[in-house]
Amino acid sequence: MRDDTLHEPDQALHVEDLTVSYGETPALWDIDLDIPPGVMCAIVGPNGAGKSTLIKAALGLVRPIAGHVRFLGRPVNAMRGKIGYVPQRHSVDWDFPTCVRDVVEMGLYRALGWFRRPGRDARARAIAALAEVGMQDYADRQISQLSGGQQQRVFLARALVQDAPILILDEPLAGVDAATEAVIISLLKRLRDDGRTVIVVHHDLTTVQSYFDWLVMLNVRIIAQGPVAQVYTPENLRAAYGQHLAMIAVSSGASE
C-alpha cells in the first residue's frame, strides 16, 4: 500500500479506531488517541487495562483487529528508525552471553544496514549513550551481572543511541530503586525539553503529576486524554480504577 499522503502529521502518535483482542476478550476497544509532539506522556491504567498492548499495537508488534496508527503522519513501517523502543526489561533473558556495550550497539543495527558490523563509530556512540545513563564504567560488563536498575538503564541507552525523535518506554520504572528512577526521569525530561516526544507506560499514580505533562488514562477503552492538569481528576481516576484507589491517588496528588 502506498501512503504518500500524510494523515494527521501534527500528532506524534495518532491512533484511530484501534481494537485488539487476545482470543475472545478484547484487550483494547475502539481506541482513539492523539499525543502531540514534544510532550512527556504517561499511559496509566489498572493491571490488564491494555497499556503494554497499546504500545505494542502502535509499534506493529501485535496485530490489531481494526484501526490504524500514524507517527507524525506516517505508518509505523515508514518510521522504524525514528522510534526508540524500550521493552519491559523482563522480556529478555539477561543470562544471554553478551556485554553491556554490545546490547547498546543493537540500537544501531538498523542504521548500519544489512551485512555491516558495528565498528569504532558505533562503539563510541554506544559509550556516549551509556554515559548519558551513568553506566559508562559498565561497558564491558557481562549483562548477567547487572542489577535490575542497571538493566533498565542499559535498555534506555539502547534506545538513546538511535537518537530518535519519538521514544516509547514500557514500564521503565518498574522495580528500579529511587536513584535509578531519578536518573531516568531527569534524562527523559531533558529529551522532552529537546523537543522529543516521550511516551511512557507508567504504574505509579502518585508521581504522574510531577513527572509528566500529558496523560492517557486507559482501561480497555480510553478513559481520558490530554494535559495532566485536565485529565488527572477524581472522576477520571474513579472511572479507570474504581472508587477506593482513586481516593488514595487524588489525596496524595492534591498536595502538589
Binding site: R80, G81, M106
Partner: peptide, 22 residues
C-alpha cells in the same frame, strides 16, 4: 556469518528487533 548481528538481535530480543523493522 552474513546475518550475524541480525541473528544475535533476534536471539536476544525479538520484540525489539521487530520494533526496529527487522
Amino acid at each position: 556469518l552474513a546475518f550475524w548481528k541480525e541473528i544475535k538481535l533476534v536471539s536476544f530480543d525479538a520484540d525489539f528487533a521487530r520494533a526496529q523493522g527487522f
